[in-house]
Amino acid sequence: MKKAILYINQFFAGIGGEEKADHAPEIREGLVGPSLALDAALKNAEVTHTVICGDNFMGSNQDEAVERILAFLEDKEFDIFFAGPSFQAGRYGNACGVICKAVKEKFGVPVISSMHVENPGVNMFKKEVVIFPGGRSAAAMRKDTKKMAAYGDKVLAGEKIGTAEEEGFYVRGIRHQVIDFTMEPAAVRGVKMLLKKLAGEEYVTELPIPKSDRVEIAAPVKDLATAKIAIVTTGGIVPVANPDRIQSASATRWGMYDVSEMARLEGGVYKTIHAGYDPAAADADPNICVPLDALRAYETEGKIGSLDTHFYTTVGTGTTEAEASRMAEEMVPFLKEHGVDGVIMTST
């Protein structure tokens, strides 16, 4: 019998709700909470252990949480790893995605999860993790678990895996060619598709183009001379110690730093941790990426009303659109609280 391990959060482990969300990672032998349903549904494996972690612990101490959980798994024998289902719970979905991705990278075993389509974890992790569409709430536990188990059984049995559509998981952006001699040739498919398009009928394109998430250009700032301006950068300028441990690529963290007492950013005090460009020039003079010196001059000249107390920073290279918009959404409340009227975005 093959072996499976399931990751769940503190709530489904019966430890507690929001008040227990800081619960540190632990591993328990045997079945806890949803493990029972998974173990019952799995034909080709038994669930030997359950990993439990508080959603907040994973959210705020991700590196530490992942490190501890990977250490728990180090001496365990397992052939497949599951997480969730996490339904519509955003932080739980994120945690499932983070740990599945890490386990897949470290141990090379298949990883499977389940989330509701609106769970942000779907878009963040569907490329790396096989995620099945799930219900909104725990009412769908049994149904969602069965889907994960059925697919897991298939993988463990070494059966041929079909397309994402056939198997039912979210598309991962993995496209391969298929030969099908029962299918009409391209010429016929093309003319049929055109007839439908001309008639305004539904048709299915064979190459869906991902929607680009365009942001409308904002209305101009009415009176620059009274406006408060902030600088936001994806150029990775941080205090040399990088206190928020922003990653050099594929960033998930950002920082805001008080520069209200400074006329310019000094090299040696600030630097870039961005791995996507030659850092020499920005390390020597960080103002070329975060133009504090120039904006102070504008402030003195009265061209702008004032400069925000802080600048906001992260790294853009390899960072996913989903992560970038999440970080922006986290920055916005601060900008609003500071009464910022306009933002200058600098990249690299």
Binding site: I161, G162, T163, A164, E165, V171, R172, G173, I174, R175, H176, Q177, V178, I179, D180, F181, M183, E184, P185, A186, A187, V188, R189, G190, E206, L207
Partner: peptide, 12 residues
């Protein structure tokens, strides 16, 4: 591409 193709692309 001129039209014989009985191949297509699918998501896996």
């Amino acid at each position: 591409v001129l039209g014989w193709s009985q191949k297509t692309m699918r998501e896996f």
